[in-house]
Design a protein around this nucleic acid. Sequence first.
DNA 1: TTTACTACTTTGTATTGCAAGGTACTGAAA
DNA 2: TTTCAGTACCTTGCAATACAAAGTAGTAAA
Lengths: 108, 108
Amino acid sequence: MNLENTKAQMRKGVLEFCILSILSEDEAYVSDLINKMKDAKLIVVEGTLYPLLNRLKNEGVLEYRWEESKSGPPRKYYKITPEGKAMLDELKQSWQELITSVNSILSI
Amino acid sequence: MNLENTKAQMRKGVLEFCILSILSEDEAYVSDLINKMKDAKLIVVEGTLYPLLNRLKNEGVLEYRWEESKSGPPRKYYKITPEGKAMLDELKQSWQELITSVNSILSI
DNA sequence: TTTACTACTTTGTATTGCAAGGTACTGAAA
DNA sequence: TTTCAGTACCTTGCAATACAAAGTAGTAAA
């Protein structure tokens, strides 16, 4: 049995979706994202987010700006692009469809 | 944008969970599993399932028996073990928690 | 100038989904 | 008898990616 692993798989599946959703409400930098995810009981770490954000930026669904910080190095604030919003809308629908699919299997 | 990829990630996340759930109702061989998943609009292929079933068998959550077929080679029928049922129960709970987590992020 | 804190980045590893190709059994057609 | 079609299991190689861990660099206080 490898319960934690399987649970982790489920969390990974919705990671990009959640990040896009958070950034659709307000721009944020990595630390913000980690905290908001943690608030929703979804643990994610730096080493996961940096490459992921870069990937999403290269796909054109995110963009960023630098902002100076009073308490350390400058921060990279990410926000969603119009293309990203379009993608998020489709993902929301896919998410609902996935819930329907899984529930149909659970009730066989 | 890479919508299909992200949607695929979501599907992958629940794959093991769905297979366990299907096998908790009745034993099945690979072709059955592919069809039941397809019925629920979750596409999965042979090359994914064989290693996955083997993994789950090695973890002790599945077991199998051979059954002769009238129309070809013998089939490997998998079924869930008591340990697998215990895991499935926990995964059901995790799945509900994940829905709650994602919904909380969607409504930020 | 050293230490602490913060933040961004990269590297290496392990997992795993999947396309593609391989083996082998049955039964029907040539 | 040989060939072919259909079915089923299995393996190999590749690509994606989450994450631990280590690296770089900025600010500010001791």
